[in-house]
Amino acid sequence: MKQVSDIDLRLLRVFVVVVEARGFAAAESYLNVSTSTISIHISNLEKRIGIRLCERGRGGFKLTERGAIVYEESKRILKSLDDYAGKIASVKSLLAGRLVIGMSDALVTHPHFAISEAVRRFNQSANEVRFQLAVAPMQDLESDVVDGRIHAAIGPFPRTKSSLNYIPLFMEQHDLFCGEGHPLFNASRKLITKTDISAFPAVLRSFRQEFDRDQFGTVREEASVSTIEAMLILLLTGSYIGFLPRHYAKPWVDAGKLFRLGEDQFSYDSQHALITRQGHRESLALSKFVDLVKEITLERRRLDSE
C-alpha cells in the first residue's frame, strides 16, 4: 500500500471495528452490513497491505502478530485524521470532526446530568461534528482520556491525576438497598445496624470493592458487578444488599421493588466531574461542548437551590 486512498481508510475503519468487536459476526450490528460483506472488506484490505491480518474460522477470530501491529497503527491514523479535521475546522471557525464523550453508567436520571441537553444546544448551531458516546468504568474513562481515545468524560474520580483537568459538576447520593422479598425489606430503618446487614449476602462493585467493604464492615461477599445496572438486576432478586445512586433507584423504590436500608448511616455522596486531557489544545468543538455542560449543570443546580 504505497498510497492511502479513501477506500483504504474505509477498509481500515472496518478492520478496527471488527477487532474491537472481536469478530465478524459481532461487528455486523456496528457496521450494519452482513458477515460476508465484512469478510470481503477484510480480504480486500489484506490484499492491499499484502499480509494476513487475522485468522477466522471454526477456531474463532484471532489477530495475527502483524495484524495486531496494523490494528494499533490503524487506530493511530484514524484518530489523527479525526483530530486533524477538528483542528482545521477550528481554524475556519467551523465546528467539525469527531467528538467522543465518555461517561459512567446510570447517570441519565440524575437531575444535573447535562449531556443530552448539551448535545441538543450544540446541534442548534451549524456544525459538522459526529458525536460518539462511550459508557465505561471510571478507570477506563481516565486512561482513555489520557491516551486520547476519548476527548472528555463525566464520572466519579476520587483521586486526581496530574495528566487530567477536572471540572466539578454535581454530587450523586448513594444509598444501601435490598429488593422485594429480602428479609430486611420494609424493616424499620432506625433499627438497622451494621451488625444486621453483615448477616446478609452483599454485592460489591468491582470498581469500589475496598470502599464497599469499609461501608459494610464484616460482610458476606457473595456477588460482584462492574456496572450500576448489573447491581440493580441482582438487588431486584431480593437475595442481596448493595449500593445504588438514589436517583437511579427511585423508580423501583416508588414501585415497591426496592427498599432503602437505614436512614443516613449507610448513605454517602460521590462527586462527579468532567475530565479532559491536561496540556492538550482543545478543538473548538470540544471547548464549546465543555462550556455547554458547565453552563447547563450550573443552571440546574441553581434551580434546585431556589
Rank of each mutant, 00 (worst) to 15 (best):
V135L: 08
V135I: 13
D175F: 12
E229Y: 11
T193Q: 03
E142I: 07
A136T: 06
D147F: 15
L235W: 03
E128T: 05
L244K: 04
N186V: 09
H247C: 14
P156Y: 00
D196T: 14
T218M: 13
E180M: 08
D196R: 01
F157Q: 07
E210Q: 13
S224E: 11
G217F: 02
Q209Y: 09
I241L: 14
A134Q: 01
L232H: 04
H182G: 02
R120Y: 12
Y240F: 15
V119F: 00
V253H: 01
R213S: 07
F207C: 12
Y166I: 15
A118V: 06
F243D: 12
T195A: 07
P111M: 06
P137V: 05
D196H: 12
L141Q: 04
R208Y: 14
M138D: 02
D144M: 15
N127R: 10
E142P: 00
L164E: 09
T237G: 04
D214K: 12
P111I: 02
D140Y: 02
V146E: 12
P183Y: 15
G179R: 05
A187N: 11
K194V: 01
L244P: 02
P201T: 02
R149E: 11
N186P: 01
L244N: 09
T195D: 08
F177C: 01
E222T: 00
R120G: 11
L191Q: 10
L169Y: 09
I150Q: 06
A223P: 06
F131Q: 07
V129Y: 13
R208H: 12
F177W: 09
A199C: 02
T227L: 03
E210Y: 03
F177V: 01
F207W: 12
F185Y: 15
G242S: 12
D212A: 05
R220A: 05
L164K: 01
L235M: 08
P201H: 11
N123I: 00
N123G: 06
M138F: 03
R246S: 15
G238N: 12
H112F: 15
I154D: 14
P137L: 00
E229W: 06
L235C: 12
G181N: 07
Q124G: 13
V129K: 05
Q173D: 14
S143I: 03
I154E: 10
R220N: 13
P111W: 09
I154L: 15
A230Y: 09
S198L: 06
G181A: 02
S143K: 10
P158L: 15
V129M: 05
N127T: 07
L184C: 08
R208G: 04
T227P: 11
G148W: 13
I167V: 04
Y166K: 10
V129L: 10
R121G: 05
A136V: 00
A126S: 15
K161N: 04
F211S: 07
M138N: 03
Q173A: 15
I228F: 01
Q132D: 09
M171H: 09
H110K: 09
A114F: 08
D175W: 08
K161C: 00
F177E: 02
V119G: 03
T195E: 10
I233V: 14
I233L: 10
S224Y: 01
S239C: 08
F131C: 11
I192P: 00
S162Y: 11
M231K: 03
Q139M: 06
N123R: 14
R130A: 11
H112Y: 13
M231T: 10
